[in-house]
Amino acid sequence: MRETPTRRQVLAAAGVTGIVGLAGCTGGGSTPTTDGQGGGGNGDGNSDGGGDGNGSEETPAGQLSPPVRGDPEADVTLAVYEDFACPHCRDYSENGYPALAEAFVDTGQIRYEHRDLPIPVLDPESFEAANAARAVQTRHGREAFWTYADALFANQDALGSETPGLYAEVAVELDYEGEPVRTDAVDRAYTDTVMGDRQRGIDAGVEGTPGFVVNGEVVTSGFGDSTVETVRSAIEERL
């Protein structure tokens, strides 16, 4: 009898499968290509490592720690897996995150992590944009990462048509170094970090972006009208 591949096996081989009931990025791009790309960098960009039993494990050697908001030592961790080319991630960033931030991040009740999961929606832009953001993290710190990430989402429509110059332009507009960010994006200097996050999300069971994982357990994947309340409930159950 021929063995039927599991959902996780399909995810690992070809991106991410479809999800039901929510809008999310779940494929449509090509299979990831990482040949000839660089390593993961070796600094933490003023980020905070995990390893405290709240779903945020130790960062593997050679990979950057995830950018963190809120209380790095909180008992509850919300990790959000995103693709910078995914329109649903942009929608969440602009219309979903502020409510969660007000309720849990700004009050220091949770540890909030960004995790990369390039589907890819665009290839190579999904990978390049993630590397660009990590380049900013390394050179300018954690808060700079979040500022740059927000700007990438705001300029999402230009990915593909104005890249790779866009990575430098956005950096310069924010008073960060431009050319090093563009170079690291094109060279995928943080491939180990980006692809390590991607595999971590797949292994956890994330089925699309944005994917929401609370203390190591997938709560939901995709973004829709009920997402914030679903995530809110999951957090409150663990507080």
Rank of each mutant, 00 (worst) to 15 (best):
1 M>N: 07
4 T>A: 14
9 Q>F: 10
9 Q>I: 05
9 Q>G: 14
10 V>W: 04
17 T>C: 08
17 T>E: 14
24 G>D: 00
28 G>C: 07
28 G>P: 10
30 S>L: 10
32 P>R: 08
33 T>V: 15
35 D>Q: 11
37 Q>L: 13
41 G>D: 00
42 N>L: 07
52 D>G: 10
59 T>G: 12
63 Q>Y: 07
64 L>V: 02
68 V>S: 14
70 G>W: 12
70 G>A: 01
75 D>H: 07
76 V>A: 09
79 A>Q: 12
82 E>L: 10
84 F>Y: 15
88 H>L: 00
92 Y>E: 02
94 E>W: 02
97 Y>W: 13
100 L>F: 07
102 E>D: 15
103 A>F: 02
104 F>V: 05
104 F>R: 11
106 D>H: 11
108 G>T: 12
109 Q>F: 00
109 Q>V: 10
110 I>M: 13
111 R>K: 15
116 D>R: 01
116 D>T: 02
117 L>M: 15
118 P>H: 06
120 P>D: 03
121 V>L: 11
122 L>M: 14
123 D>K: 12
123 D>V: 08
128 E>Y: 12
128 E>A: 10
138 T>H: 14
138 T>I: 09
141 G>L: 07
143 E>Y: 02
144 A>S: 15
145 F>G: 12
148 Y>I: 09
149 A>E: 06
150 D>I: 01
152 L>R: 02
154 A>P: 11
156 Q>I: 03
160 G>D: 04
161 S>M: 05
166 L>E: 04
168 A>N: 06
172 V>E: 15
173 E>C: 01
178 G>N: 00
178 G>D: 00
195 M>Q: 14
200 R>G: 12
219 V>H: 10
222 G>I: 03
227 T>P: 09
236 E>C: 01
236 E>W: 11
